[in-house]
């Protein structure tokens, strides 16, 4: 189960990267990057998954005593939470840049912005 989701996650990352590196349109690049981020999140969570165990909530169903035996590893989930929000932050910033770049040169093609070279 974990292996399958890992594979899914990695394929998503690779697809995202492929999209980001081949598409010339900036917005499509940012979309590809969000896909890659989603892939990373899937990988992160699937590493923490353990078979036949439940979510790390200690309530009536999972009393504190048996917690160690019944819940899955909470740490990857914490990391993912932060990672998603940071991913959103960076995406929002890139979108703002994309918009400003568009305002600058009137086009969204990355190869239009090459005056800083050599």
């Amino acid at each position: 189960m974990a292996q399958v989701s890992l594979l899914i996650g990695f394929t998503l990352i690779l697809l995202g990267l492929y999209g980001a590196l081949t598409n010339r349109d900036i917005l499509r690049m940012i979309v590809s990057f969000t896909i890659a981020d989603a892939g990373v999140n899937v990988v992160l969570v699937s590493v923490g998954y353990m078979a036949h165990r439940t979510a790390p909530i200690l309530d009536s169903a999972v009393p504190a005593g048996q917690a160690a035996a019944r819940i899955i590893d909470p740490v990857p989930q914490v990391l993912v939470l932060t990672a998603i929000v940071i991913g959103l932050g960076v995406t929002a910033l890139m979108l703002a840049y994309a918009y400003r770049l568009f305002r600058l040169r009137g086009s969204l093609d990355i190869s239009q912005f090459m005056d800083l070279k050599w």
Binding site: I57, P74, L81
Partner: peptide
């Protein structure tokens, strides 16, 4: 806290 994830977070 009941929700271990929030506790850690």
């Amino acid at each position: 806290a009941q929700n271990v994830v929030t506790a850690v977070l």
